[in-house]
Design a protein around this nucleic acid. Structure first.
Lengths: 246, 246
DNA sequence: GCTGTTAGCGTCGAGCGGACGAGAAGGAGC
DNA sequence: GCTCCTTCTCGTCCGCTCGACGCTAACAGC
């Protein structure tokens, strides 16, 4: 921390911190998962005005002495029970249209979260119900505030992140198979991938997956048991996993 | 815009908009260019407390009825004379550490701007001097607030954007040569590129460059005149221009 | 003419990725 | 046991891209 010079200390003591236009600041979360083979987002139903009865992204006001990311993590754990260590979280951006909230001037900082497949969380405070909704089934006109724009930005960011980072593994359990990872890519990108080329690619990219040395139990469809892997140390994929052209 | 139901109108009329913790919201700009062959950022010297005498990113408070991007564009034009149409602008993210400003709780929304090579702008209000500083020469400890983190995020984002978008052209004039574009890449990435492979790549990527059909005037070093191009319609590069490993 | 410069084209080989064949390893049914 | 089905895993072929680099084109200056 910088040492504050004496002249500035005196100046600060005389400073009126209410001399600037006041804003409310909120965090909203685009919490994504893959469940039952579908790329889905967590939505809550608003129990109060404004937008009563509309679907909305979970979120809430930032406390006066709370870091933005800390506020997001708090909401995540409160509203969904997802622990920070079990998920991936990054900032998506700020949304500050002057009329996005009819009550007052609000700037919302959106966070993007990748969570593994979880049971539908119990409703928290201020929301009637909480549920996973496939992103393709979301009606943008039935979302509160500007959450349609926020969700669209989050979904596109997620699709793009899967190309050049190993974060698809954040949608799976700690130990995972190549086929589970492939189904994540297929759900997020919305296209089938060749299992053989996918296998060659992910096992050939250094730092993506590390073998556990143990097979997974056989699935309900039978077939040869798959080897188990866990996430490797790589943060970026070289080479990238580019989406096939449609 | 949504029709607001009567029950909500009544509820809103009775609502106290000061019931939430007040924040100040600012925009800060990471304004980048390539000048004299160096990747540079616009810095101002702060004339007032706090951080008097420190270098800082240009920026300022968002007005109560002003969109975030509009506030950034206003600052851009006021402080630097750069017109919005002549540059590329995107949001970089929100920075909201509770103690980033000693005066009060401030959330800053940072914007990233790519501008063509310009004469050093005249100092505006509240700043002693304004100048382009090569990003490699910036001393992070001499930057005000958390601007070292903001700048680092902007520089990394810019380096990465050049890989998969045609935005390097935003650092050049409207009509440009392949060599000018190559010098932008070399300055931003900090490594020399093979002129022949670079030429093949950018002219072979559809939508990146479109020929004007006219040669550029011969440069001070002589040599064969280069053909002029202008930016094509592509928003994303397929295939991408990956940075060579160091 | 010759020299020095930059611009632009061509060639070669390594490596990656899409399309696909084929064997390995399990279960279910007979 | 054997057959049939499933999924997993490895291998082959071929086209494309990219890095390294040679070569020619088109200017200025002398």
């Amino acid at each position: 921390m910088r040492r504050i010079p004496k002249a500035e200390q005196q100046w600060l003591a005389a400073y009126d911190p209410t001399a600037f236009p006041p804003f409310a600041v909120t965090v909203d979360m685009v919490l994504l998962t893959v469940t039952e083979g579908r790329f889905s987002v967590l939505l809550v139903e608003r129990a109060t005005h404004p937008f009563q009865g509309f679907a909305a992204l979970p979120g809430g006001f930032v406390q006066p002495d709370e870091d933005l990311e800390r506020a997001a993590v708090r909401r995540l754990e409160q509203e969904t029970g997802v622990r920070r260590s079990a998920a991936y979280l990054e900032q998506l951006g700020a949304f500050g249209d002057p009329h996005r909230d009819p009550r007052m001037r609000v700037v919302s900082v959106a966070y993007l979260v990748f969570a593994p497949d979880l049971p539908a969380p119990a409703p928290g405070s201020g929301a009637r119900s909480v549920s996973w909704v496939p992103v393709d089934d979301v009606d943008p006109d039935r979302l509160a505030f500007d959450h349609a724009r926020v969700l669209a930005a989050g979904v596109e960011r997620a699709r793009s992140k899967l190309e050049y980072t190993p974060l698809a593994a954040a949608f799976c359990d700690e130990e995972l198979t190549v086929a589970e990872l492939r189904r994540v890519y297929e759900a997020v990108w919305g296209r089938p991938l060749d299992p053989r080329n996918f296998h060659r690619k992910v096992t050939g990219t250094p730092g993506f997956l590390e073998p556990v040395g143990r097979p997974a139990p056989v699935g309900p469809e039978g077939g040869r048991p798959a080897a188990l892997y866990r996430r490797g140390p790589a943060m970026l994929l070289h080479p990238a996993m580019l989406r096939p052209a449609r």
